[in-house]
Computed example of a mutant assay.
Amino acid sequence: MPQSSSLSASPDFSGLWIPLVTPFRGGAIDHAALSALTRRLAGDGVAGFVVCGSTGEAAALDETEQLAALETVQAAAEGLPIVMGLSGYHLGKTTAWVRQLAEHRLAGLLVPAPHYIRPSQAGLLEWFRAIADASPVPVLIYDIPYRTGATLARETLLALAEHPRIRGVKDCGGDMAKTRALIADGRLQVLSGEDHQIFATVAEGGAGAIAASGHVQTRRFVQVLRLLAENRLAQARAEWQPLRPLIELLFAEPNPGPVKALLAHGGSMSGELRSPMTRATDALRDRLVALDAGLSRR
């Protein structure tokens, strides 16, 4: 997969991408834990990483911390491609940040609609086109209306597909008809961003997933996507069905609290989050630990 800013080769965002959590210890980023997590996941067959997505608590990180997290992941990723998340609602500041990120080696940017202000569809077209114009690397649209308050219409996404740097969608839109239309159109790679919809999206022709659940049972998630890519539906379903209860529990409380709790139980990091995010409850953690252990014995 490409690591340079060149658009001469078509980028490939297929497979399982992990939107990395940001480990904390004593209020600061735990770079040792982040590095170890990245190395472990790289060895488990993931396609690449997303740094500073919503799972990474990016809203609670300042720009210096975000760049430091990116550098740690780049050093540990063993050459795998890295997408950087960004968000905001001030277009000038956002495009300036895009230009600053251009100094770093990235496979792409993951860009949601501007939050809070709820622009029209015409305003959304302006937002994404301006960011894509400013970016030297491919852009993935992060369609997640329940976080931004802005719904991207099917026609808007299809219009954005005309831009040469807009190459894919992280699909959390909750509209399977829109998902199917994007897959059928074929210009944008569609990656499931709702973990419980991974199987359905990829079975219908989606490219892959950006899945927080993939921090755990990673090789099983990778195998599901590999089997689907090979059209081995029955075998993929057999691998997928045991994961469904785990996914449900990992999102029973606000992400990334549950996945951090499970990773912390395994000793790879603290379960610490930045306020106002809170740790998973002990009851949920215990259920996750028992379910994960059962899956590991299968």
Rank of each mutant, 00 (worst) to 15 (best):
M176C: 07
M176L: 14
E194D: 15
T218W: 08
R219F: 03
Q217I: 06
A212I: 04
S192F: 02
A200K: 15
V216I: 14
D185F: 00
A209D: 05
A207G: 11
A212H: 02
G193R: 07
R219H: 09
A209S: 15
R180F: 13
D185C: 00
V190I: 13
T218G: 10
I198D: 04
T179D: 11
G174Q: 06
R187C: 00
G193M: 10
L227F: 04
F199W: 11
S192Y: 03
H196W: 12
L188T: 09
L228Q: 09
L227H: 07
A211W: 05
G186Y: 08
V224H: 03
R180E: 14
F199E: 06
T179F: 09
M176K: 14
A200E: 15
G214E: 00
R226V: 12
E204T: 12
D195I: 07
R180V: 14
H196N: 14
A211Q: 00
F221N: 02
H196R: 13
F199K: 05
A207T: 07
A203H: 10
L228R: 10
T201H: 07
T201D: 04
S192H: 02
V224Q: 01
G205V: 03
R226I: 02
V190A: 02
M176E: 15
G174E: 09
S213E: 01
L225C: 09
T218N: 08
V222S: 10
G193N: 10
L191H: 05
H196V: 13
V222A: 07
V222G: 03
R226S: 13
R180T: 13
I183H: 01
A203N: 07
G193H: 06
S213A: 14
A184E: 15
Q223R: 15
L188V: 09
H196E: 14
D175E: 13
E194W: 12
G186T: 08
E194I: 12
L182E: 01
E204L: 15
I183F: 02
R219E: 15
D185S: 01
G193S: 07
L188E: 10
S192R: 05
R220V: 13
A211Y: 00
L227Y: 06
D195L: 08
A184N: 12
G193V: 03
R187G: 01
L225S: 02
T179R: 15
L182P: 01
K178Y: 07
A207W: 06
V216K: 06
F199V: 05
Q217L: 10
A203M: 12
E194A: 13
F221Q: 04
G206A: 06
A211N: 03
A200C: 07
V222I: 06
L188Y: 10
A184S: 13
E194R: 13
Q197A: 15
